[in-house]
Amino acid sequence: MLEIDSLTKTYARRAAVDRVSFSVARGEVLGFLGPNGAGKSTTMRMIAGVILPDAGDARIDGHSITAARAAAQARLGYLPEGAPLYEDMTPPEFLAFLASARDMPGPGRRRAIDRAIADTRISGVTAKPIGALSKGYRRRVGLAGALLHDPPVLVLDEPTDGLDPNQKRAVRALIARLAPERAILISTHTLEEVPAMCHRALVVDHGRIVADGAPEDLAGEDTLEEAFRKLTRQEDDAQAEAV
């Protein structure tokens, strides 16, 4: 469903993303882990067609993001980091804007907006401008936007960041409900929610994949957090020794 092939992006001669390859199958939720600046968001932006890769490609449901960008983007639901939204619009206005940009026809459009509002549990705030909503609601409006066109592939950049435990649980439940029919890529900082949410996890560091496996296999004898620290600190330690 989602195939990433040697994606590479270099900024100022430093590889932000270095030949990253992986794939996500239908029904799979892949956790994308790594320290800040590891290249998670850059990878996700390339998959979403927001920035062009220097090399490599991403195929969404068979459509190349470099060769057939519009077709690929039409099959992708993307939640950017921090869930940027138009604050002066109400959630239904915002969703109607996305629906018209995605060319969803009249009756289907109304149904899709209602379904996205129901799925993300935001029906209580539809009259308020997005700027007046709490962080949890704003994140859910962003998610509603990503789900609106019922895409087969979802790329969600930190969907639970900044949410309280109840809101996190609600988002995790939503993702679990969506998972069987879709391929989902999720980046997160919160390691404890990885086993609960993801079937598989990738750890990236300095733009490269350093581990790939089921969350329990990655952790092995350690906790996931210890494993994460060992995996992502190796290079820093090596650099420190070199100095």
């Binding site: 932006r45 983007q73 039409a74 992708l76 993307y78 940027p84 939204l85 604050e87 940009a101």
Partner: peptide, 14 residues
């Protein structure tokens, strides 16, 4: 400044 350009660029429109 609001970061919504990222949203625009992810839409299948020119």
């Amino acid at each position: 400044s609001a970061g919504t350009d990222e949203l625009l660029l992810s839409l299948p429109v020119g």
